[in-house]
């Protein structure tokens, strides 16, 4: 049963699988995943006070709270995205360069699809440059899909050393 008590979360729990817990969600916009403090009602109406370290990123489905009664997970709302679909690596590289110059995160949706959040000023410019390869569609932008060139280089080095 819900009451007016605030659920304070200052560290993320180690998930303990239990049965019959109610599933609840903290609903976020795609751009809120790096927020350190969030005070908001969950989908089921629980008042949540999330206070996390800046290094922890909130990903889709991440459990942020668990007790005998409920499990609270992160739910990232889908949003309108500008999507580049191409197997032409030169085009993909140029697109990433243009978008990266604006410091915007780029998300790998699948093997030949990358996406960034819709921006009313940027979309016409990208469409003019890349033509029909750039379209609009709704996607969930999850931080686990972000292209991170430094991370990729780091992982590559680890693999090479092995």
């Amino acid at each position: 049963m819900l009451n007016n008590e605030v659920i304070r979360i200052d560290r993320l729990p180690v998930v303990q699988p239990l049965n019959n817990q109610e599933e609840d969600s903290l609903i976020l916009e795609w751009y809120e995943v790096n927020r350190t403090i969030i005070k908001r009602e969950s989908a089921a109406g629980r008042m949540i006070h999330l206070d996390k370290p800046s290094s922890a990123v909130l990903k889709q489905g991440l459990v942020i709270y668990q007790d005998e009664i409920c499990v609270i997970r992160i739910f990232i709302k889908p949003c309108t995205c500008m999507v580049l679909q191409s197997s032409n690596m030169e085009m993909v590289g140029l697109f990433c360069f243009d978008v990266g110059n604006r410091h915007l995160p780029i998300y790998m949706i699948d093997d030949h699809k990358i996406a960034i959040a819709y921006d009313g000023r940027l979309f016409p410019a990208l469409q003019q440059k890349y033509g029909a390869s750039v379209t609009l569609a709704n996607y969930r932008l999850d931080p686990s899909q972000i292209i991170n060139c430094y991370g990729n280089i780091y992982e590559q080095n680890i693999k090479t050393k092995k």
Binding site: E29, T36, I37, S54, L104, P105, A117
Partner: peptide, 27 residues
């Protein structure tokens, strides 16, 4: 159409409060 991406404002805010610790509790 404001030409400012929300994630960049949000990240800039987090960087700002990291330095300006008196606003650490501000959302």
């Amino acid at each position: 159409l404001c030409n400012v991406q929300p994630i960049l404002i949000q990240n800039a805010f987090e960087a700002f409060v990291l330095e300006e610790t008196r606003f650490r509790e501000t959302e």
